[in-house]
């Protein structure tokens, strides 16, 4: 660890608001360790979030930080990246924030291949508003708005971002915190749009509604029910039902948006000079 994590925290605002055992803090630690290993100067990092428990993260962080409106973190982050392509812009977002209200921003940020790192804290629920189901809630799971079980299928966000054009796609859980941190490190180093799905426990709403036990039980559940992408590829898709597939799924090298944009600016300048 190049930099102690306390250096990255606004310690005066700690302890944070997250419930005891909430996995959001584990993900945040993984992100901070990745930034520490890369030894990024604090002024060159900008953390952007939307609204939700996950989106409270930047409030505790001593970088440039922006806490925006629900679902719009990627829109703000795109603007920041275009204005300041030199910054490492990292979006911390929830599954509701990124996949529901912000779903369109997500697919278009990926399609444009904007040089952002997005970490989606996927607790399969709207934590902040007391446990409604989200587009990431698996079928059959319970939520305050699905008291008899969710009828909808969840998105596979990693496949969605890959199909939309992102340059880096990976998934891990809070049971794989080191792996998760390595993925975030790789994502930050990726030119173009990078997406890491971090599967996490909300013991207060998702856990209680689905009788998943303590935060430790939920982490153990993730560990037992996760399977590496390479191993998963050898199995029948039917055997993967209910499993969490983890790993790095895609690395691409499509041109990054702000670089392409700079070329347009150059062409426009040349045209104006003629």
């Amino acid at each position: 660890m190049a930099v102690p994590i306390d250096d990255y925290l606004r310690t005066q605002f700690m302890p944070h608001i997250w419930c005891p055992g909430c996995g959001h803090g584990i993900i945040l630690g993984a992100v901070l360790r990745a930034i520490g290993r890369l030894d990024l100067p604090k002024d060159e990092v900008c953390i952007v979030s939307g609204i939700g428990c996950a989106s409270r993260a930047p409030g505790y962080l001593d970088f440039n930080t922006v806490h925006t409106t629900h679902g719009r973190a990627l829109a703000f982050a795109t603007g920041i990246k275009i204005a300041r392509p030199d910054l490492h812009v990292i979006v911390l977002t929830g599954d509701g924030d990124a996949a529901a209200i912000g779903g369109n921003h997500l697919i278009h940020a990926a399609r444009r291949n904007v040089g952002l790192t997005t970490v989606m804290f996927n607790n399969s629920i709207y934590g902040m508003t007391n446990g409604q189901y989200s587009p990431m809630t698996p079928r059959g799971r319970y939520a305050s708005t699905a008291p008899y079980g969710n009828v909808e299928r969840n998105f596979d966000m990693c496949e969605l971002v890959r199909a939309a054009g992102g340059n880096y796609v990976a998934r891990a859980t809070t049971a794989h915190a080191r792996q998760l941190s390595n993925y975030v490190e790789n994502a930050i180093q990726t030119p173009g749009f990078a997406f890491v799905e971090a599967v996490t426990q909300c013991p207060t709403y998702f856990g209680r509604r689905n009788k998943m036990g303590t935060p430790v039980d939920m982490i153990e559940w993730f560990r037992k029910n996760s399977i590496n992408a390479a191993a998963a590829a050898k199995l029948d898709p039917a055997d993967l039902d209910g499993k969490i597939i983890i790993g790095e799924f895609y690395r691409g090298d499509a041109p990054e948006y702000t670089e392409v944009y700079d070329e347009v600016i150059e062409r426009a300048k040349e045209a104006a000079a003629r």
Binding site: I5, H16, G25, A177
Partner: peptide, 8 residues
């Protein structure tokens, strides 16, 4: 340290 959600 890595697993503590509270940096505690």
């Amino acid at each position: 340290e890595i697993m503590c959600p509270d940096f505690a």
